[in-house]
Design a binder for these strands. Structure first.
Lengths: 235, 235
DNA sequence: GCAAAAGTGTTGCTATTACACCCATGC
DNA sequence: GCATGGGTGTAATAGCAACACTTTTGC
């Protein structure tokens, strides 16, 4: 027995929405598409799934190609499969989103792809259905961040509470009372206070914190409401 | 300009996890696979994406083939793409989950596929990676139901509060105080009390309710916690 | 008349919000 | 010495959980 005869095969691609936080606003990394069609237009970083790799592996490969990074937060978002989304040939695309520490991003890789960071509020027109992918990723990151501590993935190992607060305010486009915010954050037990201070943002300096990885992994799936005894949830 | 030459095409399939609620427990609908490989073994309902249809359309088509139903709740879950998940030929599969009113399911379609409902706790061994798909769907339905009122999709148009509570208890595998539950549910404004009673479950009878569709659509994206002013969320 | 399920209110507690002042330092 | 951002506590409120008895009716 060999093949499923009479079935049509199609191209399968991966596209990555790469988030970064520069201390001010949330941004995504876009490239200028290097081949036809739509050559030169702004696009997500993507590529075709190869015969020897899983889709997850393809996503990791593509992320590394552009950023030089491995082992960062990468999650499958949604698969886009309208028949005519690529005018050349039918191609389904599995979108992934990544959260990276923007400082670890190696700018030199830029040149090959003409990559640039764009604030979420100033995304240019994108090729194909990439605009929909970005919209989906924005929704998903908010959704997930409202329930799970994923935003730490956007920060360096050492960060301050004001930095963290700015990040949350940026993602949710809101303002938060700093007393309540720090109480809440510290109450999670996710943070370890360091003795060192960050003097960049202010004269007095703000204490650095780092993640308590033990608690981070343990509590990653926590939170939630609505159901009385959430101990039974185990998402 | 014609094709992306030198790229490998592959098969794209859709598999559906179909949930139903019989008043007692949450169940999924499985079929006996009708062709090789793994012919005769328990499987999710699935099929290949055709050249003329989008992936969503393929999922709806496959769901209708097995259940006779259209226009029901159907959501993309995840795409599975390990290189060797199908031993015959590389096939990626987009998993969808559906929530249907089990009473609308047309049993006569059964015969062709030898379909059967299985309680979530008694799922037989499944072909390929379908076990993983079911696990993912279980997690997703809980996750989503904890935040959004999707479980109504599993009930008939008219239902009672005790029925609804049993459903929640079944999905979350927990018990809920009925006074608190009815308070909470009624406070959402999602329900309209009917004058008619369901006398099946008890001698006294329980009032039927139906969804206030206006509020249902409006509040579908509501709920949530953790972020102070959730009005800015707009998931 | 009794068994079985439906329906309903109150109270205590916990979590969340709102809010204002002092501190440390570089210039 | 003053401007800038960092750090901290308390009181009022709202939301949530715990809890028990009465009602209806088929048998």
């Amino acid at each position: 027995m060999h093949k499923y005869s009479k079935q049509t095969r199609l191209l399968l691609a991966v596209d990555c929405i790469i988030f970064g936080f520069d201390g001010e606003t949330l941004k995504i990394l876009l490239i200028q598409r290097g081949f036809q069609p739509e050559k030169g237009n702004w696009s997500l970083m993507g590529g075709f799934v190869q015969p020897t790799e899983s889709i997850d592996q393809a996503a990791n490969r593509i992320l590394k190609q552009l950023t030089g990074l491995e082992g960062v937060y990468l999650e499958q978002l949604h698969t886009f499969g309208d028949t005519n989304r690529d005018p050349i040939e039918r191609t389904a695309s599995v979108a992934y989103f990544a959260l990276i520490d923007i400082h670890k991003y190696e700018t030199q890789l830029n040149t090959e792809y003409h990559a640039e960071w764009f604030p979420l509020k100033r995304i240019p027109k994108l090729v194909f259905d990439h605009q929909d992918m970005v919209e989906g990723a924005k929704r998903r990151i908010r959704y997930k961040a409202a329930l799970h501590p994923i935003l730490f993935e956007l920060l360096p190992t050492k960060f301050t509470i004001p930095q963290l607060q700015t990040l949350y305010e940026s993602v949710f486009n809101t303002t938060i009372d700093k007393r309540n915010f720090s109480k809440r954050v510290l109450a999670t037990g996710l943070l370890i206070k360091l003795s060192e201070k960050d003097k960049a943002g202010s004269k007095r300096g703000a204490y650095y914190y780092q993640l308590n990885m033990q608690n981070y992994y343990a509590k990653f799936q926590a939170f939630l409401n609505f159901i009385p005894n959430p101990d039974t949830l185990h998402l």
